[in-house]
């Protein structure tokens, strides 16, 4: 795989994470437990969709085959998506959504912080813009983990279950393959393994304060980054892509 292909793949990963999580969050629109929360989750979803546009447009530019963000988002099949498995997991109850968000936000924040120092100024610029948004996402999801964990008996039970159930999807966040290594070598992106300690520190201290216990490190589900997804992604794409597939090039 040449440098251009690696960069394209890497940008797809960044864009697809934002796209799929943004889509998941948008599913809460009109269904949140409170009006205020509905707006807040939709804001986060829109932030992520905005980031998707930046990453995928850049990916298309790097690929040089005339595909833009829309083409990449709407006209690829599940096997060609590069998001981590964590972000495609179903919303579940509010605790599951917030646990998923917190795990991801903490990692996303650390990753973007490193990417602001990327040698590729286009990557650094997108990262800097996204980092501001994600700093707030993290603050918000962390507050919810604290409140639900250290809330009522019922909210604690649900948050603990969510923290446990999603744990096996966090390992993939720190796994490097040849694409990640190529990015490190070119000075374009960080060594993902170096994000693990700070991530764990943040997650651990939050869990402690929230009176939650973290699962033991164990077997990790992975594959999303290489296009091996859970069954959930197909349903997401059916929803997301239906219009463009059924009515190609339809616009507002």
């Amino acid at each position: 795989m040449n440098a251009q292909d690696s960069l394209f793949e890497y940008l797809l990963r960044l864009g697809d994470n934002a796209l799929i999580l943004g889509h998941r969050l948008s599913e809460w629109c009109g269904h949140s437990p409170a009006l205020e929360e509905d707006l807040a989750l939709s804001n986060v979803a829109l932030d992520l969709i905005g980031q998707t546009q930046l990453w995928l447009n850049l990916a298309g530019e790097v690929e040089g085959k005339g595909r833009d963000a829309d083409k990449l988002a709407y006209l690829r099949d599940a096997r060609d998506f590069r998001n981590v498995l964590l972000v495609e997991q179903p919303n579940g109850d509010f605790a599951v959504t917030m646990a998923r968000q917190f795990y991801f936000d903490a990692w996303h924040y650390l990753l973007l912080r490193e990417l602001t120092g990327s040698k590729d100024s286009r990557i650094a610029e997108i990262a800097a813009k996204s980092l501001k948004e994600v700093t707030y996402h993290l603050e918000r999801s962390q507050e919810w983990v604290l409140r639900l964990g250290d809330g009522t008996e019922e909210s604690h039970r649900r948050m603990q279950t969510a923290i446990d159930d999603l744990w096996m999807y966090t390992g993939e966040l720190f796994e490097s393959d040849e694409i990640d290594r190529a990015m490190v070598q070119e000075g374009l992106g960080p060594d993902l393994a170096t994000l693990h300690e700070p991530w764990l520190g943040l997650v651990r201290s939050t869990a402690e304060e929230a009176t939650l216990s973290l699962p033991q490190p164990g077997w990790a589900q992975k594959g999303g980054k290489r296009g091996i997804h859970s069954e959930h992604l197909g349903y997401i794409l059916a929803d997301l892509q239906f219009l463009q597939r059924a009515y190609p090039n339809a616009t507002w």
């Binding site: 009006l35 205020e36 707006l39 807040a40 707030y136 507050e143």
Partner: peptide, 20 residues
């Protein structure tokens, strides 16, 4: 006005509801 469980969340909600 808005609903929130405590002051911190109220500020966050205010940010999301009134300063978009």
């Amino acid at each position: 006005s808005l609903h929130a469980p405590d002051a911190e969340m109220a500020i966050m909600n205010a940010r999301d509801v009134y300063t978009r």
